[in-house]
Amino acid sequence: MTSIGTGYDLSNSVFSPDGRNFQVEYAVKAVENGGTAIGIRCKDGVVLAVEKIITSKLLKPGSNKRIATVDRHVGIVSAGLVPDGRHFVSRARDEASSWRGTYKAPIPTSALANRLGGYVQAYTLYSSVRPFGVTSIVGGWDCEAELAVDGQVGSGPKSGSGGKVEGAPAGGPGLYMIEPSGLYWGYYGAATGKGRQAAKAELEKLDLTSGKLSLSEGVKEAARIIYVAHEDSKDKEFELEMSWISSLDGPTNGRHEEVPKEIREEAERFAKRALEGEDEEEQMEE
């Protein structure tokens, strides 16, 4: 059954006879036109990357960041309607801050993804709102060490009974992708936006499920994948923006930060070399 002309696609929250919410599907269309965004969950961190198409020469280069910091340890990148992405991030920040208000500790990435999924879903329930025109990738690092409670000023007695199991694994990388319907999954590698098909194909080649890829390799691969995904819209110039969150003993100490310029540029050189190599291979085959 088609959507157009039936009237079932004119209002949010309305089911068509075959059980679809067309307004949500149209919102997905807005996502599919946005710049490619990806996230990779590595062994010792998470990397986020986005392709920013340069729509005007007058834009200030290096500004207009599309990856946002939510709490110290979480970052979000979205594809689709940019202002909707900002709304989404603003909600994420409120959730993270209210979690701290209650638990005096940073929000686990999984809990944040869950709350945001619930928030986005609520925008599919009413005719008075429209769904979010973004698919968002949430990347975070949950602290693997015993964290001080927010506002803790002392360390307490050095000996005592205690109830903690020593050596139990805790924390680690988290990567989630939330769609306009509110649906979300955890991912090893996530891709959305215009070049998502090509990006997914590349992500699948990385053998992420084995959990061997290191963060520094992940940064290079992320850059390469954005370059690969850009091939289809080669005529347009773009800027690559990348951020990462490492483990506590890694380069960002568990914080979400922009990938430093030198490392990003190195990754871009790697990406360009890899692309050229591919072209040569193709020519050889011909």
Binding site: S63, K65, A68, T69, D71, R72, R93, A96, S97, R100, K104, D150, G151, Q152, V153, E258
Partner: peptide
Amino acid sequence: DVSDMQYIDRLLESIDIRENYST
């Protein structure tokens, strides 16, 4: 007061997190 100090410390932490949203 130490508990008030802890309250203010959390306040400062939330401001620091907020300030770091900016590039």
